[in-house]
């Protein structure tokens, strides 16, 4: 399935809904979209991976890049993911210790002070 990207606003957070396959071919589009968001002044970004069917190292690299970009801009970056197959990827790469990962959008957007990380 092709990559799909859609943004919406939830409680002062910009939620980027990602669907389909994020790989070496499609990841540049995800990177462009995230850069656009940060460049347009967005500072609270939640990437919802609920519709993602495949995620590889290139996609993970794009997510880390966005998190770093937002950190420099004093912004916040978090992920929404509840799929075990994807969570295993984050655990194996140790990126579960790098990203705040939430099970739902509600949990991610409730975290208004950025302290929770469950």
């Amino acid at each position: 399935m092709e990559l799909s990207l859609a943004t919406r606003t939830v409680a002062e957070h910009t939620v980027l809904e990602v669907g389909g396959e994020v790989d070496v071919y499609t990841a540049p589009r995800l990177r462009e979209r995230l850069v656009e968001l940060v460049d347009s002044g967005v500072r609270n970004v939640v990437v919802d991976l609920g519709g993602v069917e495949f995620l590889d190292s290139t996609g993970l690299g794009v997510l880390v890049g966005a998190m770093k970009r937002l950190r420099v801009a004093n912004g916040r970056f978090s992920l929404v993911c509840s799929k075990e197959a994807l969570l295993k990827i984050f655990r194996i790469t140790a990126l579960d210790q790098v990203f705040p990962i939430f099970p739902t959008i509600e949990a991610a957007t409730r975290d208004s002070d950025g302290s929770a990380n469950s």
Binding site: D56, S57, T58, L60, G61, I89, I92, T93, A94, L95
Partner: peptide, 8 residues
């Protein structure tokens, strides 16, 4: 990406 790819 290289490091993460090999970790996977």
């Amino acid at each position: 990406t290289t490091g993460v790819g090999f970790a996977l």
